[in-house]
Design a binder for these strands. Sequence first.
DNA 1: TCGCCTCTCTAACAGTTGTTAGAGAGATTT
DNA 2: AAATCTCTCTAACAACTGTTAGAGAGGCGA
Lengths: 199, 199
Amino acid sequence: MNTKEKIMDVALNMFSERGYEAVSIRDICGEVGIKESTLYYHFKNKKDILDSLVEKFRAHIDGLLCHIGEFNSHPESKSDKDISENMMDTYMMDSYLFDPFCNLMLRLMMIEQFHNEEIRVLYEKTLFTDPYKIQMKVFKMLAANGVIADEEVEWTVREYHSYMTMLTFKYLLNGDLTPGRKKAYKKEVHDYLMRRFNS
Amino acid sequence: MNTKEKIMDVALNMFSERGYEAVSIRDICGEVGIKESTLYYHFKNKKDILDSLVEKFRAHIDGLLCHIGEFNSHPESKSDKDISENMMDTYMMDSYLFDPFCNLMLRLMMIEQFHNEEIRVLYEKTLFTDPYKIQMKVFKMLAANGVIADEEVEWTVREYHSYMTMLTFKYLLNGDLTPGRKKAYKKEVHDYLMRRFNS
DNA sequence: TCGCCTCTCTAACAGTTGTTAGAGAGATTT
DNA sequence: AAATCTCTCTAACAACTGTTAGAGAGGCGA
């Protein structure tokens, strides 16, 4: 990890805990182990660090969404049962909520969205719009395979989406992401899936 | 509204948009129209403003929860139908989510919870634990009145709670609380209630 | 009228903020 | 060997931070 990456890593950790404005250049440099002027060799100003993080995040989720799209068009490798059990907790929200970079970016976006419209739009897309779209895609596929009825799709997706969103805010975007909270999240997801789709 | 109240009002508006640390004493005093030293006559330091807001919020929700408790013990004044339609969107979450003071406090708590354990606990209680408890109480009453089956109560509450929580984050705690977002929230609540309990 | 209480002011403090100019060290290219 | 490029440093800047000492003005009861 080079200096520029180290700066972004440290900055994200600090921004996601205390907010962008509350973190000083000296806080970041102290943690990285460089002088302030060195930071200005890699970034043109403080805002540039935030912009770079947002840009990196965009590229990151574009990659993930693209990967999910590919998976959806080649589902033959798995049985229907596997899809309903496995896909949901492996390929949908978890992949970008458990990932440390995405998780910290979401925290940062949760803080900054109130006074930064660009971040607000990205925040809404990442937590609400995109997951809903992906989940809709998956459930439509399940309906096409006869696993659930066509007319149930819309409200099944809405309920599923709301449940996962609530669990995300309650366990993954609440305080530190401790092993305990991760475990509680996984248990709740499992309990919901068992009751809703395996009974 | 006296000076102290004006300071708290302005401070809450600024804290809830930019976060506690990002707002300076001079920002607040400038907006209120007083000199910095005057602020220190009313508050012993900056942290004291935040603490006073949290204290005021605690008293505020205690009052609301108490009021809901009273209402629940005198339900005779309404018919069963009224309860299932009216109580849900009038007495449960809306009362403290639409209220401007509570809404701004929740935004502030959303920002500060990541580095303030006291606020994190209050945040979790306000958005997750308390609403779930209240909703459980209401649905148990509905079950006692034969409106829904006893064994359905737990998961009905879980689903209802998750749906309302998702809508809260999506519409009431996302960007400015515009009339448009308020209206969209109400429409989604109405659609959900119609489908889930009136079909 | 006197002193007291409540509230606001002017003026300043030491420390922190984002940012820049310019120099030096090491590696790579000419 | 000379020149260039990449990266880091020292040292400073003006503006801003939270906070305080102390004075002044208006209203109150004695």
